[in-house]
Design a protein around this nucleic acid. Structure first.
Length: 483
RNA sequence: GGCGAGGUGGCCGAGUGGCUAGGCAGAGGUCUGCAAAACCUCGUACAGCGGUUCGAAUCCGCUCCUCGCCUCCA
């Protein structure tokens, strides 16, 4: 079997993954700024990193996964009049900023839970780590990498030669030419970024610091919390591509300037969700919230939709595309149900070759679309076997089920649980419905036995109107609820 | 202007030198009392133009187009 390769944004190549400490993986992913409900873009990002974590755990690594919650310091823009996103929303809803942060944090976790995203081991908040951030700023000032100006503390980009290496923006003078970086009077260099900002009297979220009342800059929290929980050098840092610059370049600068150690060994960046070819973003107003999407689609279908494309490719959203995924997703669950229901036979199936191909795909920079395609190839082979008179031996069936539950279930998270698959309506009134259905099926069976097809077809047609579909198979009639 | 990623069959979406990606939709067939499901078969796909090569979607050059970042955004 192949070894795990990860595309490292820093080296711009697929590198063999070796954790710093054998067997242990430290991983940090930029979390949401909690001032609104999560949208499909969040889903793509966190589902992608969820599979990263799941696959590494499958490989036997002990993963410590930290994902922050940004609840302060994230400004609407970099200009002087930049407003804190949380505060802005708080004013709009006329409630306390902390209430905004907490309620959208809960909303975020609800949405992710439904997508089958496993919770991070630690979800630290920026407001909960003010002392750590102040400490980091002090360290940077002591080492001459930061300076105070009017109560604001800035990181001096010129003091850190490698600044901009991740994004390829190393020439700061070139950066100014066509860019939109505002010249700030209290900055020594236009590219310098804020570590700590002085709070005006009207500012709601502020803390006392050695430099007066203020609040932390956005980039700072990730460095402070990543290092607190994962150490000064971490294995993997993930985030959205749009955060490569400036956010991640700033993280590298302030972390490495403070410790003189490499901050991150493997940088991973996931691509965007687009709508009609344009990025889905909060500021663009073209986003679809997950709560909205869940009204029309099973969250698991959305997860499946996301994993059918690679995390580094953009994913174009459309109703048609998700509906196509819905059909494919249903086929996967139905095949699994068929396998669970299948009578014992004698045939066999080479499950191992599929498992190997799946593993190779995931080892190749988490190539979930290929992993999904292997599962569908397997499903085809499985259905062919089950179509044959000899069926599948109990051993092969068990192996097949283990493969599906491992790769489609445990790793990709696109397989419903055995109970969900077997409980045909998956909802309320299960037992009663089962009993009523068995009566109807018995009547229909009798009608068919005396070739009274008018009656048997009428039962089937009436049921389909109620959203219940019948299928006549060799082993008898099965039924399932259709949306 | 700078940095970066792309243009694949009706749609979505993998694939980095020769070998079927896969899903959805469509056509024909097998099965079925009829359906449904499943399975089998079917698409002369790789933006354009040159070049390298025995051979290119895949490498090189040019052209056209799209998208992201350079302000906040997963």
């Amino acid at each position: 079997m192949s070894s795990l390769q990860i595309y490292n944004s820093l080296t711009r190549s697929k590198d063999t993954f070796e954790p710093l400490i054998p067997g242990l993986v430290s991983m940090y992913v930029c979390g949401p700024t909690v001032y609104g409900h999560a949208h499909l873009g969040h889903a793509k990002s966190y589902v992608s990193f969820d599979v990263v974590v799941r696959w590494m755990r499958h490989l036997g690594y002990k993963v410590r996964y930290v994902q922050n919650i940004t609840d302060v310091g994230h400004l609407t823009d970099d200009a002087d009049e930049g407003e804190d996103k949380i505060e802005k929303q708080a004013r709009r809803e006329m409630i306390d900023p902390m209430e905004i942060a907490q309620s959208y944090t809960r909303s975020y976790f609800e949405d992710m839970d439904r997508l089958g995203v496993m919770r991070p081991n630690i979800s630290p908040t920026a407001t909960g780590h003010i002392p750590e951030q102040i400490e980091l700023v002090s360290r940077l000032i002591e080492k001459g990498h930061a300076y105070e100006s009017n109560g604001n503390i800035y990181f001096s980009v010129e003091s850190f030669p490698g600044y901009g290496r991740l994004s390829g923006r190393t020439d700061q003078s070139a950066l100014q030419a066509g860019g939109r970086v505002e010249q700030r009077s209290d900055k020594r260099h236009p590219s310098d970024f804020a570590l700590w900002k002085r709070a005006e009297a009207s500012h709601l979220m502020k803390w006392m610091s050695p430099w007066g009342e203020g609040y932390p800059g956005w980039h700072l929290e990730c460095s402070a919390m990543a290092m607190k929980y994962l150490g000064e050098t971490i294995d993997i840092h993930g985030g959205g591509m749009e955060n490569k610059f400036p956010h991640h370049d700033c993280e590298i600068a302030q972390s490495e300037a403070a410790t003189d150690k490499p901050f991150v060994r493997y940088w991973m960046h996931n691509n965007m969700v687009t709508v009609d070819g344009t990025k889905m973003g909060k500021s663009l107003g073209n986003f679809v919230t997950l709560k909205e999407l869940y009204k029309s689609f099973d969250p698991m279908v959305i997860r499946f939709f996301i994993l059918q494309s690679h995390y580094r490719s953009p994913l174009d959203f459309s109703d048609a595309a998700i509906r196509a995924s819905q059909s494919g997703f249903t086929k996967l669950q139905e095949t699994c149900k068929r396998l669970l229901d299948a009578p014992a036979g004698t045939g066999s199936l080479d499950v191992q070759s599929f498992a190997d191909k799946s593993a190779d795909a995931l080892n190749d920079d988490f190539n979930t679309p290929v992993a999904v395609s292997v599962i569908f190839e397997f499903i085809k082979a499985l259905n062919s076997s089950l179509d044959r008179a000899e069926g599948l031996s109990p051993e092969s069936a068990k192996e097949a089920l283990a493969y599906l539950e491992s790769y489609a279930g445990e790793v990709l998270g696109i397989l419903k649980s055995r109970d969900e698959i077997m409980s045909q309506d998956g909802a309320e009134g299960g037992e009663t419905l089962e009993e009523v259905m068995s009566v109807l099926l018995e009547l229909r069976k009798e009608a068919r036995a005396r070739k009274d097809f008018a009656t048997s077809d009428r039962i089937r047609d009436l049921l389909i109107d109620k959203g219940i579909e019948l299928k006549d198979t060799k082993e008898g009639t099965t039924w399932s609820k259709k949306k």
